[in-house]
Design a protein around this nucleic acid. Structure first.
Lengths: 325, 325
DNA sequence: TTAATATATGTAACTTGTTACACATTTTTT
DNA sequence: AAAAAATGTGTAACAAGTTACATATATTAA
């Protein structure tokens, strides 16, 4: 592996000059520059990023902390984030905390050891103070663990409202609401939005909390059986919606004629199912891109145009709800 | 941020001694050791991994190269791999090549720049020679791009056989086979296994190639319509199986009474669907764990107990096939 | 024409660790 | 008791870059 010294020797210049050429910094004569470039080419020289990082105290690594890797929404987001990170000439380190304090500790240490440049928190943690102590730029996605950490999330309030609007317009009077874990701000916002529309309307709502990752199929079936008069169901994820639709079919209910169903996320499967699921789309594209823009701004010391960024959601009307009467 | 010098000063020893304590290497007096440990504790000292890596020419980073991040099988695998990597005190760098030559080039360079310790290839590439030139330990998962790179994959041949057995036992005489992309060895093996069982039996097979990532829903429906006499369908992924079942229902066919369906992978959704999908389970757990074991062995210069590792698959009989008559 | 400024390049210190080697002391072996 | 081996510790070189500073020359300004 060629080093900067080898290049310097071949080009008959000092390492400083080579460094200047590489980093396009300081004065370098055009002819010298050409010589150096040729030597770099000739030797297939690639600067050692570790040496560079050591000196500069930045590793060009972005850490993404998540609680798991197997939800469809996270996968979509991960795909976007990885792409944006690379486009900005950074590298992505995946940190799956799994809500395991030991694993999180390991990662907290790694962030220090590697001079990680930025952290994107997409997981819950009760060690937010330890993150802050690291003195590394942080942003949160879908969380609000500390007031002084910039955040980004979908407009979950609007999402809840849109869902309620849709069911109401379809004539629902008796709604079942399968929520996510009530500890999440995202879930709280959706509920707030949803209820803000329902309130005052002559409509009943029964809410039931479910895990997002592995929604309890049995609980869904039971709950539906206990509410056979329900004519609309708001599911806070498309996976829940899928399960709900399955359960309804089993009970001989027709979707959307007997019961209307609306999901959340708009994962790819939502339009693979029969019937295609009406849902509230969260744009993982926009969230991911904006998240990276924010963290890059923080890294370069710029001020953020918006500290708590909200990304619009969109109603995707498909076949599990009735079009406005 | 405290450095090794600060620790040395506080413990009244040289940096060499501190280094010896940290790395538990060479002779250190017990009392001295205690002093150093106390200083480390006191200063919250964390050794800089970049400096270490620079000297040792290893970064403790494992790179995982994939063609995308959004398939359920990959997500499961990723979850296992990340966990095992951390357990071995390495870090995972996600490299989503997206079959984009430019992005792959970027990553190829990064592997050099960071002295990446090992590469796990879970993606196709036409630059396998460039990977080899890096002189970094490599293994392939589900691929066989070069004879001199160790590999690991499910026993796809057996998987194909099991699928065929199951459909045959269920009495199928007219089988539709939705394959994956025929360029993949995994797919070739499944087909080989499947056909090896079917051959000689009085049974027809029609094969149709589909993309794994976004299987063409229309093509599935069309193909089924053109083969209304089919009584068994082998799908090389559970997602394809889901789509097939949807299509069959649309056509008024009952599963498994009119048509039996068997999938592949055993993703979580397979047992969320109604009816639960019979499938061939690939153990992402075993594949992931073994892959990491292999790459760790390569990194430490050990010889592999098996150069081309095959992981057993398992038939999971559920509701879309008939139990043996 | 002199002073000031811009251009061009090299030397050496610096980033934070690791480790070869030297040297001193202690313990064990013969 | 002398020699050999084991234990304990420090100095300084080294990994591969970046950059402050010194210095020299070429331009430009006064």
């Amino acid at each position: 592996m060629a080093t900067i010294k080898d290049v310097a020797k071949m080009a008959h210049v000092s390492v400083a000059t080579v460094s200047r050429v590489i980093n396009q910094k300081g004065y370098v004569n055009e002819d010298t520059k050409r010589l150096v470039m040729e030597a770099i080419e000739e030797l297939n020289y690639v600067p050692n990023e570790l040496a560079r990082s050591l000196f500069q105290k930045k590793s060009h690594i972005i850490a993404l902390v998540l609680p798991h890797l197997t939800s469809y929404y996270f996968s979509d987001l991960l795909e976007v984030i990885e792409d944006e990170v690379i486009k900005n000439n950074y590298r992505l380190m995946i940190c799956n905390s799994k809500d395991d304090p030991e694993k999180e500790s390991k990662y907290l240490k790694i962030f220090e050891q590697y001079n990680v440049d930025g952290i994107i928190l997409l997981a819950n943690t009760n060690r937010i103070e330890d993150y802050k102590k690291l003195n590394i730029p942080i942003i949160e996605i879908d969380h609000n663990l500390s007031d002084d950490i910039p955040s980004i999330a979908s407009n979950n309030f609007l999402g809840g409202k849109l869902a309620a609007d849709t069911l109401l317009k379809g004539g629902c009077k008796n709604i079942l609401h399968f929520r996510g874990p009530s500890g999440l701000v995202t879930v709280q916002e959706r509920t707030r939005g949803f209820n803000s529309v329902i309130e005052g309307e002559n409509t009943k709502v029964f809410s039931y909390d479910l895990a997002f990752l592995k929604p309890d199929k049995k609980a869904i079936e039971e709950t539906i059986k206990n509410h056979l008069d329900a004519d609309g169901i708001f599911c806070e994820s498309d996976v829940i919606a899928m399960l709900v639709i399955q359960a309804l079919k089993k009970l001989g209910k027709s979707v959307p004629n007997d019961v209307q169903v609306i999901g959340f996320d708009n994962i790819q499967l939502a339009c693979m199912m029969e019937p295609n699921i009406t849902t509230i789309e969260q744009s993982s594209e926009k969230i991911g891109k904006t998240a990276i823009k924010m963290i890059m701004n923080l890294i370069s010391g710029n001020t953020l145009e918006s500290f708590n960024k909200i990304i619009d959601v969109k109603l995707i009307e498909r076949e599990t709800t009735k079009k406005s009467l």
